[in-house]
Simulated assay, not measured.
Amino acid sequence: MAISVSSRQSTTDMMTSTSPKFHLLSESGLRVGHLNVYHLLNKVPDISSFLNNEHPCIHLLGLSETRLDYRMSDESIAIPQYLTFRRDAIKQGETGLAIYIHSSIQSITTRRADLESQSVESLWVEISHSKSPSLLVGFIYRNPTATYAWYDEFLVMLDKVADNKKNILLLGDLNIDLSKSHSAWESTYSLVGLHQLVNKPTRVTSTTDTLIDHIYTNRQDLVHNVSVPNIGISDHYPVLCTWSMKLPRHAPKGHTTIQYRTFKRFNKDIF
């Protein structure tokens, strides 16, 4: 069964780069996050506000449970300064994924649909920059009704990803509560050399605190600023981290015009 691939660039992404919130320094690192949005279409303004008010800027934001379909165009979820990739649900048990990619890294970001499993709902991109090792970033969703066979499919996908011999960063809603011991899953992700970095509850209700949104990597030394901000866009909190890498510098777009009065030919006597 084919995996749906769709991408677009917002037609309203020509906002001037002199705005402080979009001025990116190469030493700031790559900011990556994930949120189970639970219906994206009616939350686009909230996501836009979240992205535009975060300092430093979020370069990649993955969303799970987008619940989009072919009737909902890319324009209907567009956010200025961000490109979108999406994978809509293609079979029972899937709920849809999307990624917002900031304009500053669009030239170094490539969709890796070849790494996306037919059995594991996932979206993968590669970040390639001449001054830093390549990074594969994946976003994933595991339906809570999935069986243990899903673990085997996960390993098949990660073996394929690992064959690329690149750094890996994987974020998503796994619906596995790691605030409690879960030896089967811990053994599974350890087999492919991954480490889980989130240590705070990501879904809090009046009766439960669960850690079901995770961040995994094969290079713990390159990940810092892991956080779970208390933002109520959905019934999950986002998970965020910064990946240590150089990012391209971008010159300001357009031209600046300054008006001034010159006294080069001023003649005091004539005046």
Rank of each mutant, 00 (worst) to 15 (best):
Y100T: 01
L191Q: 15
L25C: 12
L123F: 01
R111W: 15
S117V: 07
D152I: 09
Q259T: 10
A184T: 12
I47Q: 02
S234C: 05
Y148Q: 11
L68D: 08
L174D: 00
A146T: 10
S244E: 06
D213P: 02
R142N: 03
G172H: 03
S19W: 07
L61F: 06
R265L: 15
I77P: 07
Y216E: 03
V204Y: 02
I77S: 01
G232V: 00
N218Q: 01
E75Q: 13
N167G: 03
L25Y: 11
V32L: 06
F50P: 10
V239C: 02
N267G: 05
A149P: 00
T110D: 11
L24I: 15
L35F: 11
E27W: 09
S19Q: 11
S4Y: 06
Q259W: 06
I77E: 01
Y151S: 10
R67F: 09
N267Q: 07
F50D: 08
T95Q: 14
S122G: 04
S128K: 14
R265W: 10
H129I: 04
T207L: 14
S190W: 00
K246D: 14
Y82I: 01
H195Q: 14
S132Q: 08
L25S: 13
L240R: 09
V156I: 15
Q259V: 00
N267E: 02
I212H: 10
S227K: 08
I176T: 12
T95G: 00
T256E: 06
Q118L: 11
E27M: 07
R67L: 10
E121H: 05
N143I: 09
N199I: 08
N225R: 09
S206K: 13
I105Y: 09
T84C: 13
L35N: 10
D159F: 10
M245W: 02
H39P: 00
E65Q: 10
C241W: 02
H182N: 15
T208P: 00
G172S: 08
S19P: 02
P133A: 08
Y141W: 15
H195W: 06
G193N: 04
T188M: 13
D269F: 06
S76I: 00
G29N: 04
S104G: 07
L178K: 07
I108G: 14
S107K: 15
M157H: 03
H224C: 03
I140P: 00
S73I: 05
R261A: 12
T262A: 13
L191Y: 01
S206F: 07
H102V: 01
R67V: 01
I233V: 07
V125E: 07
R112N: 03
K21N: 10
I77R: 04
P201E: 08
H59T: 04
H236Q: 08
E65T: 03
S183M: 12
I108A: 12
A149H: 12
S187A: 15
S6F: 01
S26R: 11
L24P: 00
L222I: 03
S206L: 14
V161H: 13
E186I: 12
I79N: 01
K268G: 00
